[in-house]
Nucleic acid binder design. Sequence first.
DNA 1: GCGACAG
DNA 2: ATCTTGTCGC
Length: 286
Amino acid sequence: MEKPPEAEEPSQSQDSSRDHQTWITAQDILREKLIAEDSFAWKLPATVESSQAGSEEEEALRYVGGVDISFSKDDPSKACGTLVVLDFLTLQVLYQDFSLLTLQVPYVPGFLAFREAPVLLQLLEKMKRSDNPFYPQLLMVDGNGILHPRGNLLPTSEPLTFSGFGLACHIGVEANLPTIGIGKNLHHVDGLTHCRVRKLLGDEENSSKDFINLVGCSGHVWGAAMRSTQGSIKPIFISIGHRISLQTAIMIVQMTCKYRVPEPIRQADIRSRDYIRKLEMNAKVK
DNA sequence: GCGACAG
DNA sequence: ATCTTGTCGC
C-alpha cells in the first residue's frame, strides 16, 4: 500500500553491493598473478649499458600499443574502444582498430576495469588471433595501474610492494602483456593528494621532463608524477600495470612523450574520438 | 560529519 | 568520460 519511492532502493543497493563484492573478489584473485618487475624478452634500443653488451640475440622493443575508450555525447552508454600500435622509435601509427558497443556496466570509482577492460581485451585478442605482426610487446593504458585505492601487499614480491589493482593491471594480467598505467588525474590513495604532489614537484627545482616518486603516507611508492613537457603545470601519473618495473616504465613513457600524454595513449584518444564523432555525423545526415 | 573518488 | 570559445604564445 504505502510504498514510498525509497522502498525500491534496498533491493537495488543489495544488487549493486553483490556486484561490488564480486568485483572485489575478482580483483583479489587477479592481483595474485601480478608481476611487479621487468619480465619481457625485448630490450630497450638505446639503453646505455646494453649498447656494447653481447646481447645481440634479444630483440628490441618496437611495437608499443595504446588503448582508450571514448563516448558518444548523445548517448553516454554508446562507446568506442580503440587499440593502436606505434613504432617505438618513429612514433608512427602502424595499426588501429575500433569496436563500437553499448556499455551496460556503470563507472564505479575503483572498478573502472569491469566497465572498460572487456572491449579492450577483445581488440587485443582479435589482433593476436590473426597473427598480426604488429601485435604489441608493451601496452600503455589510459587509467591507473597499481596506483589504485584497493591496496594490498603483493603475495610474491621480494621488496614488499603495496599495490592496488587498476585498469592497467587488470588488462596486463588478463592479456599476459607488460602494461603501463597512465593517469591524467590523480586518484587519491594513501594520503597522496593534489596538494602534496604539487608541493613535491615544486620542491624539485629540476629541469623539465622530470618526475617524482609518489610516496604515500605509509612510505610505499605507488608510481610517479611526471611533468612530461617543459612548463607543463599538470603532471601525468605513471604506475606499473604488469610485468614491468616503475623505473623501466618511466623511461619508456619519457621516450614516447611528444606532448603531455605519451603518443600511444594520445593517438588512441584522438582516433577514438574521431571515429565516434564521424559516426554521429553520418547518423544525423541519415 | 564532510570531502574525495582513474575514465 | 562529456558539455564548450576564445585566447595567449611559439
